[in-house]
């Protein structure tokens, strides 16, 4: 579903953000992407939603090589992805409902379709009661839930979350993480970049660690190697 094949990413300044990165994310999988700040976690996500293109290697999303997509196709791709950020990136002068509806409006969905779908995802993230509140009137945890609802409203096959709990207190972090697990349980793959190792340790999901742009640990590969060793 998401496949990186020997990906390198260099920036115009000359710094190398990713080096020889190869991995595969399967349908419905939950994957933690960990590493220190600047390790390349966000770059991996940006390559998936085609904000960046690889300098070398291939990034394939649902079989499509992102380097070969035109701007319109990039828009089409993003409608099939759900993206959540640490800083929420909500339209502050719009209500929670409007923010979620906006992601449907850009697809040209009809109003009659938009309203029930928006209410369904807001219910899913537990924000039905706050649908008409402006996003800047909501707490950090609630704003992140609105962002998740917006990411979910187009029924994405994968949810990309870039440090989604980075700006939240512990309680809100637990709530948002529980929500991501529920979403994954319903069949949506989740790729979550985080440096919150407590969160990673307490969940039994595949974990990949990046260091200076290189993959230094992949729990899936290590487990497979371990199984082969014991067999």
């Amino acid at each position: 579903m998401i496949k990186f094949v020997r990906v390198y990413k260099a920036f115009p300044s000359g710094s190398l953000a990713l080096r020889d990165l190869s991995f595969h994310v399967a349908k419905g999988e939950f994957l933690f992407l960990t590493g220190h700040s600047g390790a390349g976690k966000s770059t991996v996500l940006r390559l998936i939603y085609a904000e960046h293109l690889p300098t070398q290697g291939e990034v394939r999303i649902s079989g499509f090589n992102t380097a070969k997509l035109n701007r319109r196709e990039v828009s089409q791709l993003r409608r099939r992805l759900g993206i959540v950020f640490q800083d929420f990136r909500l339209l502050e002068d719009r209500t929670a409902e409007d923010n979620v509806a906006f992601a449907l409006e850009v697809t040209g969905a009809k109003r009659s379709v938009i309203a029930p779908k928006v209410m369904r995802v807001l219910a899913q993230v537990g924000l039905t009661a706050k649908a008409h509140q402006y996003s800047n009137e909501l707490s950090g945890g609630e704003q992140q839930r609105v962002a998740i609802a917006r990411a979910l409203v187009n029924d994405p096959f994968v949810l990309l979350a870039d440090e989604p709990t980075g700006n939240l207190d512990e309680r809100a972090t637990r709530g948002v993480f529980r929500l991501l697990r529920d979403i994954n349980a319903n069949g949506t793959a989740v790729l979550m970049a985080t440096h919150d190792l407590d969160l990673v340790r307490h969940a039994n999901y595949r974990t990949m660690e990046l260091q200076d742009g290189a993959l230094v640990f992949d729990s899936k590969v290590d487990q497979q190697a371990m199984k082969k060793g014991t067999a």
Partner: peptide, 16 residues
């Protein structure tokens, strides 16, 4: 510009 960036992120086309 922030609003435009968000529009692009949620899949809005340039013409939209």
């Amino acid at each position: 510009s922030r609003e435009i960036a968000i529009m692009r992120l949620v899949g809005a086309t340039d013409s939209f």
